[in-house]
Amino acid sequence: MSALTRSPYRPWAYSPWPFFLLTYLFSWTCFGIVLALRQPVSFTPPSPALLLSVLGDFGPFVAATLLTTLASGRQGLRALLVQLKPARLPLPVVLVSALSVPLLVTAANLLSLASGGAAPRHWLHANTGTLVLLFAFVLFGVAEQTGWRGYAQPRLNARYGPLVTSVVLGVLWATWHLPLFWVTGSGQYGQAFAPYVLEVVGWSFLMSWVWERGGGRVLPCVLLHFSINVTAVTLGTGADSAEWRSELWGVLMVALAWVFRRSPQASLAHRD
Rank of each mutant, 00 (worst) to 15 (best):
S15P: 10
W17I: 08
L21R: 11
T23S: 13
S27K: 09
T29F: 15
G32E: 08
L35A: 14
A36Y: 13
L37F: 12
L37V: 13
V41C: 10
P45M: 05
P48N: 06
L51F: 12
G56F: 08
G59H: 09
P60W: 08
F61Y: 13
L67C: 14
T68A: 05
T68Y: 02
T68C: 06
R74E: 10
Q75H: 14
G76S: 12
R78G: 11
V82Y: 06
Q83I: 14
L84Y: 12
A87T: 13
P90V: 06
V93D: 00
V94P: 10
L95K: 09
L95D: 11
V96T: 11
S97H: 05
S97Q: 04
L99W: 07
L104S: 03
T106A: 10
A107V: 08
L110C: 06
S112H: 13
L113W: 12
G116S: 10
P120G: 03
A126H: 04
N127P: 02
N127A: 09
T130D: 01
V132Y: 15
L133V: 06
A136P: 04
F137W: 00
F137P: 00
G150A: 02
R155H: 01
R155F: 01
L156C: 01
N157L: 11
R159V: 05
Y160C: 03
L163T: 07
T165I: 06
V167C: 09
V167K: 15
V168H: 03
V168E: 04
G170I: 03
V171G: 08
W182P: 10
Y189T: 13
A192I: 13
A194L: 13
A194W: 12
L198V: 15
W203K: 02
S204P: 04
W211S: 12
V218N: 00
P220T: 00
L224T: 05
F226Y: 11
T231G: 08
A232E: 07
T234A: 07
L235H: 02
G236Q: 00
G238R: 00
A239N: 05
D240K: 07
R245W: 00
R245Y: 03
E247R: 15
E247P: 11
G250E: 04
V251I: 03
L252H: 06
A255K: 03
Q265N: 03
